[in-house]
Design a protein around this nucleic acid. Structure first.
Lengths: 111, 111
DNA sequence: CTAACACTGAAGTCGATGCTTCACTAATTC
DNA sequence: GAATTAGTGAAGCATCGACTTCAGTGTTAG
């Protein structure tokens, strides 16, 4: 995927997880798959609200859903988590590389 | 720290990184420390806006700032990243534990 | 001493967004 | 086949949040 595309993907993942209700949904689904109403119950919000959150989570690659009969089953998807891990990893390595160079500089005997 | 406290910390970190401008600031600072105006330039927003973002990033433990004379120098802070990594790690392990149990179940010779 | 600089604080604007209600469709159950 | 169940779609509302302007404060340079 190109830079712009993965950038947009990072945007979607962070935006999706920026909301505490959506994080709660992800936390639920990492424990077990659930139906839309199964998610709505503990969250104390309407089915409609949950469905709206699910759309955003699905676009971000954090959740996968499948409708069978009248029930939509929602499962965790690892792609979104991978995006998150990669972003954090990049920040960490950039930072460490810089601190290493600083270490080299301070270790210089002269100049 | 208690559960409620770390929960609030997770909230702050995800909220902070949910905004693309704040992620851009973190990306800048992982490369090198910068002043407030040094950050504002490339972002094409006012100093005031940057200062507001910095407050949020600092509360989330993603950035550390220090004012010397009239210049505020902003640096990366790893505590926020650690919170993020821990959250992702927990989701991954919960998920894997579940899939392992499912594997055991499917491997059952009977019942 | 004055001018430019780097930033701060208060206050307001305006679009984004999380949630609701209401009306509806489709699948089950009795 | 009537009633219940599970979810969808459109529309509206109210709050939040990112950004700006403007009016300052303290700091450094000429």
């Amino acid at each position: 995927m190109n830079v712009a595309g993965s950038q947009a993907q990072v945007d979607r993942v962070f935006h999706a997880l920026g909301d505490p209700t959506r994080r709660a949904i992800v936390e639920q689904l990492s424990e077990a798959p659930r139906s839309v109403s199964g998610l709505a119950g503990p969250l104390r919000i309407t089915l409609t609200a949950v469905a709206q959150h699910l759309q955003i989570l699905e676009d971000a690659g954090l959740v996968r859903t499948e409708k069978t009969g009248r029930v939509r089953t929602c499962r965790m998807e690892t792609a979104g988590l991978a995006v998150l891990e990669q972003w954090v990893g990049q920040r960490r390595t950039t930072l460490e590389r810089r601190l290493d160079r600083l270490g080299d500089f301070l270790a210089e005997p002269d100049q």
